[in-house]
Amino acid sequence: MDVRLTTEQRELRDAAARLADDLGPGSVLDLADDDRAARLEKAIAATGWRTLRSDGASGVEVALVAEEFARGLIDVPFVGPVLADDLYARLTAAGEPAPEGLETAAAGAATVAVDGIAVDAKGLRGLLALEGTQVLAGGVGVTVEGVDLTRLTGEVAGPLTAVGELDAEAALRWHALALVATAADMLGAARGGQALAVEYAKVRQQYGHAIGSYQAIAHLLAEALALVEGSVSVLRHAAWAVDELSAVEAVQAALVAKVYTERAARTICETSIQVHGGIGNTWECLAHVFLRRVLTSAELFPASLEEIDLGLS
């Protein structure tokens, strides 16, 4: 047993973190900066990380990039394209030529549609969807800003066409990866919200002292850090399990990770708003942007307590 990240995984994580720190939005105002977003899009397209799966990367690598991107509120697509790429990789795994309709997916320019909505669709033309074990392809229509200020959703343009079939196990593994990627997204956003609050608590003064020196504030932030660490541990296992355990076990590990991380991430983001006081309840403070990202990633491929296996036959 050795569950440390490999050197390559640490380097990937650090590279994703640097990119997010350099080009992610540092403020709510930055979200409207199209030049920055264009530079970010160019930089991420150049990394090739949207096609990590067809390049043979494991669920761990996908989770690490998703986490760092959400921590930096990356406002161009990643989770959507990487899930589309996983479907594409599974359809072409046997070395068969790509079926018709997968051209955009092959180029890393497709996202996925869930319940008739193209998620994480900013600037993307194509989409794939999994219904049962059938893979469908189509195009992205009009995109709109939703609850999440960092990601756009789109209409599904026109009818979808069937482009292939996965076996039941592959479909389960894809679902496990979707749970893991969205859980990693929640964890990253929560870490971003936590860091924002810790920095604020060090500089905001009341009664002549930094508010972080008061136990009422300090203990909230300490609890939030413990929740981060618990989430990291449970998610690391689920990300590994996507490719290493049986498909059923992989889904179960992913459900556990998502249920835990969802509660943790929401609590952490609520703490961040509380520590920011009145400012935390204003639109201009990034705290709610992290929370919004957590809420949308929770609803995308949801996991519920009822699905947790208690070992009952």
Partner: peptide, 16 residues
């Protein structure tokens, strides 16, 4: 006490 330790030594929050 654990939270005091986390706040002071890991998060680097100031002590009053």
């Amino acid at each position: 006490i654990q939270k005091n330790i986390i706040a002071g030594r890991i998060l680097g929050l100031p002590t009053s």
